[in-house]
Design a protein around this nucleic acid. Structure first.
Lengths: 186, 186
DNA sequence: TTGACCATGTAATTTGTTACATGATTTC
DNA sequence: GAAATCATGTAACAAATTACATGGTCAA
């Protein structure tokens, strides 16, 4: 099984989910396409690590639940070595060449970046508030344990969004100062 | 050409580099293997977007330089749509299931995470200091323009390292509080 | 009735990872 | 003289992306 497969199992510890839901939750720290998720869930099901209960649920929606065997399998992975986090950021790839980018385009790139993370920050703040509302900010609500991991991860993501926004402002300011002083040329 | 290929071009705007160097610089925001980088550089060379000057340089080291055609090609990419940043984080994949992880292992996971980002923060701080030293903190040194992009990216990375470390401390504290209160069970 | 979102799947292609291969240099 | 780091390459395999394919729901 690959890392994404284990991660799907990990997310099913919190609550039974459909592939579509998993894709959404996953976006906090792992962007996966549905074309990866659905086949993996089918594989996990064949292996007996998840079961699906399509019961009375609307139309063609498959809610997966982790099995005890799935939990054991997951534990083995959790005990093993943890791979380093991976990032790939095209914006930064472009920014590397900032000295030869048209100033209008630079401003545009920063603006797009800020808008993107502003949107994410808003979404993640809302999610955090919802978790607090559901379980109580003093962490006393029922079922809290199973959502604790997601809560920590969501908080991290929100913190990172804010750090990214702060950096954006700083970097854009630096650029403007630089540009006004020396006019950059090149 | 793919995003990594364009990003390599972008990095060559700053200064001529070997594939090995590029791999190192890239690690700030894009983790690529040498088995991707070397073939891409050969491809870019065949297309005339980079040239290599192995001249008097030690043994088998190939220093690549971007051409004017390469810069034009790069500009087209920079003008186009920017793909969203990608992250994949196994640690967070494990953390999702924190409610069923042995507390000792949880502490270990947090410790490893902190050590990892502490190490990165130290490296990135050092790199930032070197850039400041080389060009002057008031951004007046010669050749500053071409390293400005790298400077911004390096600062971002350092900020993110610190944010990650702060979150780690917060999250570990939350976990300990939670664990001491309710003993988590499960 | 159009567009956004929910919902799942497969196939073709591209990208990324791991393994195979080699060899020099530097530091301890 | 052993280990780490510098340095480049290819091949086999695994994973991710994009395209193809289908169909339901809900709100403006």
């Amino acid at each position: 099984m690959n890392s994404l497969g284990y991660t799907l199992l990990s997310m099913l510890v919190r609550k039974p989910c459909s592939g579509y839901e998993l894709k959404g939750y996953l976006e906090l720290f792992w962007q996966a396409h549905h074309s990866q998720i659905y086949p993996l869930l089918n594989k996990l099901e064949k292996l007996g690590y998840v079961v699906y209960i399509s019961e009375n649920d609307p139309i063609h929606k498959k809610i997966y639940s982790i099995t005890d065997e799935g939990k054991e399998f997951l534990q083995e992975w959790i005990q093993g070595k943890t791979a380093k986090p991976i990032t790939r950021d095209e914006f930064l790839g472009k920014l590397y060449a900032i000295s030869i980018i048209d100033p209008k385009r630079v401003e545009e790139l920063f603006q797009e970046r800020q808008a993107y993370f502003q949107k994410l920050a808003t979404i993640h703040k809302k999610t955090l508030d919802e978790i607090d509302e559901q379980f109580g900010a003093d962490l006393t609500g029922e079922g809290w344990e199973s959502s604790f991991g997601r809560y920590l991860i969501c908080k991290r993501r929100y913190d990172m969004d804010l750090a990214e926004l702060e950096w954006c402002q700083w970097a854009n300011d630096q650029y403007r100062q630089k540009f006004n002083n020396k006019n950059f040329s090149n």
